[in-house]
Design a protein around this nucleic acid. Sequence first.
RNA 1: GAUUCCGUAGCUCAGCUGGUAGAGCAAUACACUUUUAAUGUAUGGGCCCUGGGUUCGAAUCCCAGCGGGAUCACCA
Length: 567
Amino acid sequence: MSYLELSEQEIQRRETLNKLRELGINPYPAELYPVSDFSNEIKSNFNEGKQVCLAGRMMSQRIMGKASFAELQDSTGRIQVYINRDELCPGEDKTLYNEVFKRYLDLGDFIGVKGYLFKTQVGEISVHVQEFTLLSKSLKPLPLPKTDTEGRIHDAFTDPELRYRQRYVDMVVNPGVKEIFIKRTKLFNAMRQFFNDAGYMEVETPVLQAIPGGASARPFITHHNALDIPLYMRIANELYLKRLIVGGFDGVYEFSKNFRNEGMDRTHNPEFTAMEIYVAYKDYNWMMEFTEQLLEHCAMAVNGTTSATFGEHSIDFKAPYKRVTMRQSIIDFTGFDIQGKSEDELRIAALSMGIAVDETMGKGKLIDEIFGAKCEGNYIQPTFITDYPKEMSPLCKAHRDNPELTERFELMVCGKEVANAYSELNDPIDQRERFEEQLRLQEKGDDEAMFIDQDFLRSLEYGMPPTSGLGIGMDRLIMYLTNNASIQEVLFFPQMRPEVVQPKIELSATETEIFECMKIETEMLLPDLRAKVDMSNKQWDISLKTLTKNNLLKVSKEDDLLYIRLI
RNA sequence: GAUUCCGUAGCUCAGCUGGUAGAGCAAUACACUUUUAAUGUAUGGGCCCUGGGUUCGAAUCCCAGCGGGAUCACCA
């Protein structure tokens, strides 16, 4: 990398790196550093005079002549360290303090310190440093927010683009960010624990699938060279988990990275994480109880309480949750009873509610539209919506009391779906007909053609026990538990458009034209040169600035005349 | 996909109806032995997102593009 492409501060840091090497200090030492203490533990359990050894980034430095304070940030927080010149360097040679610590350490560098604990005159718990070691030099300056005496934060690193693209920086300077991801991991752990305690088994199923099944969404497509076949990134893992139930497991679950080639916004990322669990010999009523127990357990594990705040809403994950059938929900919010209505009657009703409809919509779709427009948003507290129309649920068993409905529920929180569950369809003949019905619906003009997975149907023909399955959108759930309105805040590395590569510094056509001209003339009056080249004023202006900036040409003013010279 | 806002120093942001580019913090140098947004003095630092247009003159006005945010639509 050329120095031309570096900022002043980056150049300075590279120079101090060399100075450190000249002093015989390796800025990137290989040996382990014997960390024995952490800042949060020292602060919560202060023990005057205790010998400690800790390591982290130096995040601030206050030099006051022969003594200095610095803040060390480790994985658990920050702690102040105190460095005294004559204690650090008892002999004549004060280089370690005067040069290394004061001049050649930069904010963001990793250092290790050994010393003893004490409290300063103003009562701050600090480490009295007796020995410090440079562990790793930082060559780029961190954007460092400052908090003033009244708690206001200045210069916060807030630009979402930079925060997502450089999440590593985001986490170093914005401490709340790490908290979100710690909670995310706690959520996964709590769920695993709950399932494992219930005796169910975590499994792994294919991410690359020859037939992307289990949902209807546009897949990402790739190619396997050796087999010379197209393969798809999975959009769901449902059909594979059901095969495992066929194979004889009583309960299987998987945290599944799914991939959908669709739009991105604050609740959708092309890759996202779903949890799916299937339990044999259960139905969706059992699954509702299981789900509310699960979420209560998870909320406690993540936040230590079942209540959570999401935006303006206060929600409570304490079981049990209200259960409302889709029919009753639509009656509640529109007064309209969908029971026994024909497709035309539903279409007219939807139109009268101001919902856009078209001829391709079947009964199920119409009902779903009405529910989505008029009901869904009203369920703030966790609520089970049950008994969805059959057309919307091709993998779900028909309702035991009403063949037009299915044994399905969705869990709504803050007006959005966080979980979806069925009494799974295990009648292979019915399943085949549902798939074919889906195909017919999609031939009407849906580009998300669903493939019929013949192997899945074959597995059902061998027999699948009655089974209930549940899927949870993990990203969405953690958004609720951490009060984040954007999925990007709960993913370490949300999908971004690729960064544009900065063009190398090389002369443009107009710059070359000017430069070639000056190579011949060496010295000219500026207006003469301007007259000689053919370009817009803006091109002229920018080209000249670039050339002078890179020390190729120089403009000088003599006796009110502007001269340009080759350097 | 639609609407709307934004893009200026390492960071956060000013910059009026066009007239030589600004602040705070960060950086550099010096002083200072319990400070904490340390302090004091001095110094350096800019493709004002890109391209085109209007103009004697554009960070500023106009057009197009790129990138990002927000809202809406689509997405079981």
